[in-house]
Each structure stands twice: as C-alpha cells, then as structure tokens.
Design a protein around this nucleic acid. Structure first.
Lengths: 336, 336
DNA sequence: CATGATGTCTGCATCGTTGCAGAGCCCTCA
DNA sequence: TGAGGGCTCTGCAACGATGCAGACATCATG
C-alpha cells in the first residue's frame, strides 16, 4: 500500500510536481487558484510526504539516537522521558536503544553496520566502552555522552558533579551525628569512573571533618541494582561493628539496602540512616521515603540535546564538560 | 562531513558503482581479485552505507515506532525493554515516543505530518484515542495495539485476559477469608476499558461466591499512579467500615496504597491485604513485597512485534485479539 | 569452428523529494 | 512600443543506493 506521491497529486491537479511540492511546503509564490486546486487534490488522495525521500535529499533525518544501559532502570527511564521531551521541543524524535552495558552493543552503535547513518546524532550513556575506543572510531555523526565516564575533552559530556554530590550526601549523614557511615556501590576498575568519583566525594566529606574511613565499610557492587544493594547491606550488617548510616551510589541500591534492613528488623533511620543518589520517583513512596541527591534530569536532557543539535548544525562549540546542578532532598530515611 | 559514497569507493578501486554495491552486500559473483581490491578501497575510505538511500530504494526502513503513555511508568519501561529486544531479534530498531495519554499526541502519530512514513509499522498503547477515530484514519503503515482498549476486530490487539486477571486476584483475597475487598482504579468512562474489564473480573469473583459488592469499596482513579493509589486508600480508610483487603488495578496504585497504609499505622497483610497487577520489579523490593498478577511481558512484546512484522511483510493474518498468559505471584502483602 | 552456457562486470533507470535555473506572462514606465 | 522587472510555474538534475538487462570474456561441447 504505497501511498500517493507528489507525482500522483500533480497529475490529478494538472500541475507540475514542483508546484505541488511548493504547496505542501508553503514555499514560494503560488497563485490562490492553483493553491486551492492542488490542496483539493492533496486532500482527495490523502497525500503524505515520504520522509525518507525528503531526508535523502536534505541529508538529515530529524532523528537522534539515545542509547542507555537499561531502560527499566528507573533513572534511565526518567532520563529517556526528559530527552524525548527535550528533543520534541526542537522537532526531533528519538530512537531509543539499550546496550545492557554490553561492550559489543555499545560498539555496534558506532560500528560500520550500525544504523547510525539514519540518525543526525547520538546520545550515549556508556558503561563498557573505553575512551580510546570511542575516540578511535571515525564517527560520522556527532556524539554527546551522558553521565558515566570521563572523556578528557574529546566529547561533549553532560553530568552532575559526582564528587560534590557524594560529598554533600555524606556530610549530611555526618552532620546528623552518624560516625560509621558506609558506602555501597564503589567500582574500583576501569569503567567504574562515576562510582569512583562518588567514592572520592565520600572520602572528602570524612577528610574535611578529620575523620578516618573504615575501608570495610566501602562495599563495591558490579552494577547498581536493588538486589546488589540488599546483598551489600547484609554483608555490612554482618560486621562486628555495623554502620549507623549508609551512602548508596544510587537509589536502587538504597532501596535494596532498605529492604534488607527492614527484613533484618533494623529501624530506619533510628538504627541506620540511608541516602541514595538519583531521586527516582519510587524513593518518594518507599517506606520510609528515601533521602537522595537529585540531579536536574530535565536540565541534563535539555543541555545534552541542545549541544547535540548545535553539533549537528555545525554550530558546535568545543567539546565541553557540562555540569548540571543537583540538590540534596531530605526525606524520612535520614530525618530521624 | 558527509561520508564517502559508493561512487567514491568505485572511483578509487577503479570499478563500477554496481560492483562495489555487490561487494558491500555480498551479492552476486565477484571475482576474488576485484573483491579484494574493492574491500581495500572500502576500508581505506571507511565506507558506511547510507541507509536512508537504501531505504528509499527498498521502501522500508527497518524501524518500527512504539508509543506508550509514559516511559517512566515502570510497567511501560519494562515493556519497552522487551519490545526493543524482540524487535532486535528480527533486525529491527525501535523509535520510542510517549503520548502522556494525550489525545493530540496520539493523533499526531497517525496524522498527516507525523513521521509515520519513516516507520514500517506502529505499536501503539492507546489511552485517549477512540476506536472510531483510529479506524477512520487511513493509516499507511500497519498498526498493532497493546494493552489498553478493545477494538472489535479492526486491529491486531495484544493483551492479557483482564477479566480473568482481576477475578483471580480477587479470588485469592477471598480465599484468604477476607470479606471486605476493595478495588482501586476503576475508570467508568469511554477510554477506561481496561479498568472496566478489571472491575468486571472483581465482581465476577464476588458473584461466584454469592457475595455482594459494597460499591463504596470501588474507588475510581483517573490514572494509575502512586499518589492516586495513596489518596484512594486514605479515602477507604476513612470509611466507617474500612476494607480488609484491596485489589489495585496496577502495581503503582498498590505501592501508593501500601504507603498510605503504613503511614496510617495499618499492618500489611494482617490488617489489610494488598494485590496489584503488572508485576513490576519494584514490587519485589517493597516493604512488604507485593502480591501481583504477572503478565508475560516478554511474550506480549514477542507476539506484538511478530504480528506487526507479519503485517509489514504482507503475510498478515486477519486482525486478531491475541491473549497472552498471566499468573498470580503471591508475596508478602497477602501472605499473612 | 560455431554454438551456447556460464561467469563477471557495467550502465541505465528508478525510489520520491527538493534545489536550481529559466521560461512565460503581465505589468510598468520611459 | 519595447525594455525591464515581478510574479508564477516548470523541467531537469541530484541525493545514494539497488533492480534489471545486457555486454563481454571465457569455456565446454558437438
């Protein structure tokens, strides 16, 4: 069922293809008489422009690709939503892909046979791919990185100040008088740069008060999921001298940790206070509700889309680290 | 930075454009000698096929569109994930859009100026648009409907058996000995058909046991969000004779309801048992964990993508109601 | 040696649209 | 009257790829 083309409409209205095109696009001077006649033909045939052809001619598609590790991780779902909204404001639509944090999938996005040529630009939230490899690939389309990873100056990169975020969250716990503050989510290996930044912030907060960090309280997790947060918490509870507060490197870890605490009969925040990072909606409705560091997700999306579109339009400033604001949201899990 | 084209490669390798195309696609007989020479040229220039051009020629894009009301509603996020996975298995990618359950946005997807011509098919989870309007639009591309709404035979439609799902959940509560079972989430108006089906199931369960339904226990909500679930629960608690169990029409409502119950000092499930529908991951980690009806989301995605691709390939069977299995998952919120 | 079958390779047309240059036409003004 | 300028409208070429038909060379066969 291929729809009617400009040619069909032109034949019916007895005008040139070009004139129909002009009517469709509101271009150029077209006499009222013809305009009416052509419009009638358009309506009768229910003409819809073939965007593929238009794109081929114009060299752009009006689509950007957005690749995140996991769509059903609430933080990413909320981010995707904001990106779609931001892109929409500029007349762009978004092709969403998930990489599962899988190196191969991330490579595919940039590789020879990818569908990348269908998109005017790529927003990538990388987990596995290395900076060098990213740079090495002769990308045809502009790329903007989201959140994870630091890519010293080769790419535009949008994120919050992770060191400050973790530091402020930790300071909040210390200010409550807690003295054994644990950290869940460190990733002391190549691709865990975001986690490492948060660990730095966590240590800074201690250092500023002249406090030592008990390294047994820093529990690494390979990913940021509820189950891993619960397991990490169980390990912490098994210590001879368990923590009285915990900074989780994202809200899912925190929710998992709270689940483990409740199951173990610990009271939150009385026995142990919990802080997360991300401010996912779920944290407002958990029991207890979750204190967290809220990145300005809408702003992340706006900035990322904005700089990507600038690059697409050739008005690209130098690749820059774009830092988006965040703020601490105090709820029941530390409001004891 | 427009990349090299077949023409550029052909010139460099001193062969015809057509031969380069053959090498790229592995088509036709090409002598080893030429193959090697062309491949070298391809590599040197780092050629990537222009998919837009290819699509124009072939009349298909390898992309489908998926429109859901809200991406950050966990059920939809999980569904989107499965759809992307299912489409990927067939070599398709997915453009995701969110309608916010807004009539205009749903219309846009089908309307004249939509980007619909860029996609080979559309998976739509409609909230606002009416059956008549959907049918009236001369759609260029195949459409498959997900979840919401019943469209008597005009479209392929994939969903669980909502009546049975609600009935089984209610029977589970009644089997526990609960006798004042409330229902949160009815939508007694045109576009709330899924909710209405669930209400039917809820009533059937009562009828089968010869029990009457106290209509004050059936609380409508315009949407399926945590906050609305909490508010509905508060209203139920204010009744002179509050319920001892509640069926929520999705898990978000249930999580909101549980939040309200906890805040009000009620014990779950001792004072009141709670059941949801959707089986979102969050329900496994809530306190208490949530009993729910689990639709087979992966199967929904597979069936929907499967029938959509069949339609795209012209091998379209008659529009059909495709019913996907579900099962009751009992967790702490009713396991008292 | 003529014939035809096979195997390689090429050029032209085409997908549906838009950019560009220019063809008519009418009007104005010297 | 005729040169010049606007206004409409048209046809051709092009975007980058693939389908098709056919050209050419090679080879086996009778």
């Amino acid at each position: 069922m291929p729809g009617p083309t400009l040619r069909d409409v032109a034949k019916r209205a007895n005008v040139s293809i070009r004139t129909v095109s002009n009517v469709v696009n509101g271009y150029a001077p077209v006499s009222d008489e013809l305009r009416v006649r052509v419009q009638a033909a358009l309506d009768e045939l229910d003409y819809r422009p073939n965007l593929i052809a238009r794109n081929l001619k114009q060299g752009r598609t009006g689509m950007i690709a957005l690749a995140v590790p996991e769509l059903d991780v609430p933080y990413f779902a909320e981010l995707v939503r904001e990106v779609i909204t931001a892109a929409r404001a500029h007349g762009y639509v978004v092709m969403v892909d998930q990489t599962d944090g899988d190196l191969e999938r991330e490579r595919e996005l940039l590789g020879r046979d990818s569908r990348a040529t269908m998109f005017d630009g790529l927003l990538l939230s990388p987990l596995a791919i290395s900076a060098d490899e990213l740079r090495g690939r002769g990308n045809r389309v502009p790329v903007v990185l989201l959140g994870e990873h630091i890519f010293n100056g080769s790419f535009h990169h949008v994120a919050i100040d992770n060191v400050a975020a973790a530091r402020e969250a930790t300071e909040h716990l210390l200010a409550l008088g807690r003295r054994r503050v644990a950290a869940i989510g460190d990733q002391p290996y190549a691709t865990g740069e975001t986690a490492q930044l948060r660990t730095i912030g966590y240590r800074q907060a201690h250092a500023r008060r002249g406090l030592d960090v008990d390294d047994r309280l820093v529990v690494p997790t390979p990913r940021f999921h509820r189950r891993l947060g619960a397991e990490a918490m169980e390990r912490l509870l098994a210590l001879p001298d368990p923590p009285d507060a915990v900074l989780c490197y994202n809200d899912l870890l925190a929710l998992g940790a709270m689940r483990a605490l409740t199951r173990a009969g610990r009271r939150i925040p009385d026995d142990i206070a919990v802080v997360g990072i991300d401010d996912i909606e779920e944290g407002q409705y958990s029991t207890p509700s979750l204190t967290t560091v809220a990145p300005d997700k809408a702003e992340i999306a706006r900035r990322a889309v904005g700089v990507l579109l600038q690059s697409i339009n050739g008005a690209a400033p130098q690749p820059a680290e774009i830092v988006v604001p965040h703020r601490l949201v105090v709820r029941e899990s530390t409001a004891g």
